[in-house]
């Protein structure tokens, strides 16, 4: 859980950095983004990493299912009057629910972009690269899509808020001082990722509203 989680978190940084190119002026962004996508699709190393990524998503989800099963089994009969929530944060207790939101989002996300790019019949830009850029821009012209996106990213944010530091604990970081450092970095990371990923659809939606 921790290792796959941390790998996925790391991927989020790379993915975000790539996608920030969408914020460039339209013409420039289109060419650069498409060629970047092309580069990713063609590089063998990147392909390998991508397979690791798919594997991580699957393992992370399977692990989550196992944890939920263990929880159910270990809980036995549940409490009839339960106020235990006061002792922990809501998102730390609801990582599974947040995870499900993120997973559903991922399915949509893969279907709309990844599947289209890989197996769909996309037009090409002036450089001859598949025009993923236009696909993205068109998608984010729809308000409901932007809202869906933002909800999912918020879920991701809270998932990270707990997940990043929790993963370090699970790996075994027990030094009190470094734990404080990780706690702070975890929050910074979660906030940065959330803001970063929300800016893109908002920017595209506002700029390309016709």
């Amino acid at each position: 859980m921790a290792i796959t989680g941390l790998f996925l978190s790391f991927f989020l940084i790379i993915h975000l950095l790539g996608n920030l190119q969408l914020l460039l002026p339209a013409e420039e962004a289109q060419l650069q983004y498409n060629s970047y996508s092309h580069f990713l699709g063609g590089n063998i190393l990147v392909k390998l990493v991508a397979y690791v990524l798919y594997l991580c998503i699957i393992l992370h989800s399977l692990d989550a299912i196992y944890l939920a099963y263990r929880r159910k089994k270990a809980n036995g009969v549940s409490y009839s009057y339960d106020r235990r929530g006061r002792a922990s944060t809501w998102y730390s207790r609801n990582m599974t629910a947040l995870g499900i939101i993120i997973f559903v989002f991922l399915v949509i996300h893969f279907k709309d972009f990844w599947y289209h790019y890989k197996f769909g019949d996309l037009p090409t830009d002036v450089n001859g690269n598949k025009d993923l850029y236009t696909l993205v821009v068109v998608a984010f012209e729809q308000l409901w899509y932007v809202i869906l996106y933002i909800i999912a990213i918020l879920a991701l944010g809270y998932h990270l808020l707990h997940g990043v530091f929790s993963a370090h604990r699970t790996i075994g970081l027990y030094h009190p001082m470094y734990n404080k450092v990780i706690r702070v970095l975890g929050v910074v990371f979660a906030v940065a990722i959330t803001i970063g990923y929300i800016i893109i659809p908002l920017f595209l939606y506002i700029n390309f509203q016709s």
Binding site: L67, R70, R71, K73, A74, R84, R86, A87, T170
Partner: peptide
Amino acid sequence: EGFGYCTNTEACQVE
């Protein structure tokens, strides 16, 4: 013994 896994919610220390 049938205990569950820890997911670091930290409620235990509080109580």
